[in-house]
Structures are given as C-alpha cells and as structure tokens.
Amino acid sequence: MTCPHKDTCPLFPVFTNDKLLNVWKTFYCDADHATCERFRRSSEGKEVADSLLPNGTTLGRRTGSGP
C-alpha cells in the first residue's frame, strides 16, 4: 500500500538525483511504508526532522556534516 504522505513528504525536495529518490520510494513509500521511520514518528505525533531518512538514519550524520 502506498504511503499517504508520498506526494507531500518534506524529505523529497532535498533529492536532486532521481535514481536515489526512486530507490527510497520503491522500498518504503510504495512497498512497505509502515516500516518508514518518518511515517512511524508522524503517526505517533512525534516531530519528524527533514533530514531523517526512512530507515531511521539522519542525513549527514555518516559523513559528519549534519545540521
């Protein structure tokens, strides 16, 4: 089932690479959005940082250049 936030998810405007975008969409938005950490936190009413990826990692942490 497709994620109801797929078309409005604030994460996607940060993507400029279509291939990378589609990887995340295919695995999370289209396949199993219940496992998306962004969806989980949103459903629980928790804050969802724009840099939070669906697998729970925060964009930039790995490279040490986080916000």
Partner: peptide, 19 residues
C-alpha cells in the same frame, strides 16, 4: 540545513549504505 552539495553527497552515502 546542510549545504546542497554536502546534502547530496550525504544522501548518496546513505543510499549506498542502505541499499
């Protein structure tokens, strides 16, 4: 937020690490 170049590099690294 992250600068755009750094953001795209970080995104590529995360995507490769995840998939």
């Amino acid at each position: 937020e992250l600068a755009d170049d750094a953001r795209q590099r970080a995104l590529l690294a995360e995507t490769l690490a995840a998939f």
